[in-house]
Amino acid sequence: MHAGGGAAPSARQGGAPVDLARSVADYTSRFGPDRGYLHPGRADREGIAEAIGLLLDGHREQARRQLARRDFTVRTVLDRPTGHRYTEVADRTDTAVTPRGWGRVYLDLDHHPSWSVQVPHPVADHGTEQLGVRVLRGAPGGVLVVAGAHRASGSGNSADVAHRRDTVFHAICAELARRGLPGIQLHGFAASSAPGYDVIASTGAGSAGRREGRALADGLREHGFRVCRAWARTCPLEGRTNMQGRAADTDDVEFLHVEFSPEVRAGGRPAERAADAVAGVTRAWARSGVPD
């Protein structure tokens, strides 16, 4: 199942000029296991996710009002390196002494939303946040969802959003899946966890993304990466218990859970080659998500 996300947003202003990679780096630079995390109530989770849905449908002002009630801001930014415009949804408490850690979202403002790239463990999985920016820039119609805290912050595993349903991150990703937007979730593994591999590719709990998974694995191999294909053999870190993958499986939506080695996540040419391979999949999602 794959559907477009409704009408493209209608705001046409130029937006605040930024370097999206720098903005995300500045945002995540404050993350750490010693930073606080506030568990969101159900009303907050559902209200924020519903507002993201309003943005996808082009109801910007209604979404802005609803997000303001949850202490989130909405603005248009212009990514200077690419010339692309995005709607940025940000938590006002991000720069506070005790941030809530509820995350940030960037939505392509110039194309119909048709797929998502998800970063559940920024900083903890070093470099995945920057890889997420590269992936967003690689194809039209993307939605970047970045978790708002280090996975070890907060009480217990409360901020480990990949393994919990009661987070703003999960509520947003579940809303995207409910609307039929396929997603790719980026993770990082320690070199000792999968010796001999650069990437571990999986479709998570379901199999709807099997075709895209094969295409991604083939593309990564063509770029010189050693890939463990979880649908063909036993791999470590297959993401079968990933909650966003389970939500996508419930809605029969394509989902890819991809783990990258430290070398790939370090940036430079390896990260560029990995993002190029991912773009082969996200561009296809963008094409199939354009309304007739």
Rank of each mutant, 00 (worst) to 15 (best):
M1I: 01
G4K: 11
P9V: 06
G14N: 14
G15H: 03
V18W: 02
V18P: 03
L20R: 07
R22C: 08
S23I: 10
H39I: 13
E46V: 11
G47I: 10
A49N: 12
E50S: 14
A51Y: 02
G53K: 06
L55Y: 10
H59P: 02
A63S: 10
A63V: 06
R65F: 10
L67R: 07
R75N: 00
P81M: 13
T82Y: 00
T87G: 11
V89P: 02
A90M: 09
T93A: 12
T95N: 09
V97P: 09
T98L: 15
T98F: 14
T98N: 15
G103N: 07
L107P: 00
D108V: 12
D110F: 02
D110N: 14
H111E: 15
H111G: 14
H112D: 11
H112T: 15
S116N: 06
V117K: 04
V119W: 03
V119H: 04
P120M: 06
P120D: 10
G127T: 01
E129F: 00
Q130F: 11
V135H: 06
G138S: 00
A139K: 01
G142C: 06
G142D: 05
V143G: 00
V145G: 05
A147Y: 03
H150A: 10
S158I: 07
A159H: 06
V161F: 06
A162D: 12
H163W: 00
V168D: 02
H170N: 12
E175G: 14
L176K: 08
A177I: 08
P182M: 14
G183S: 14
I184A: 06
S192M: 13
I200L: 15
A201N: 04
A201Y: 00
G204Q: 01
G209N: 13
R214D: 09
A215M: 15
A217Y: 00
D218F: 14
E222L: 13
E222H: 13
G224Y: 08
F225N: 00
R226T: 13
R226C: 08
R226P: 01
A230F: 01
W231Y: 06
C235F: 10
L237T: 04
R240A: 15
N242G: 06
A247Y: 06
A248W: 01
L256W: 07
F260A: 04
P262F: 12
E263V: 02
G267C: 07
R269F: 08
A271H: 12
A271M: 09
A274S: 09
A275L: 07
V278A: 04
R283A: 03
A284D: 10
R287Y: 05
S288V: 11
P291K: 15
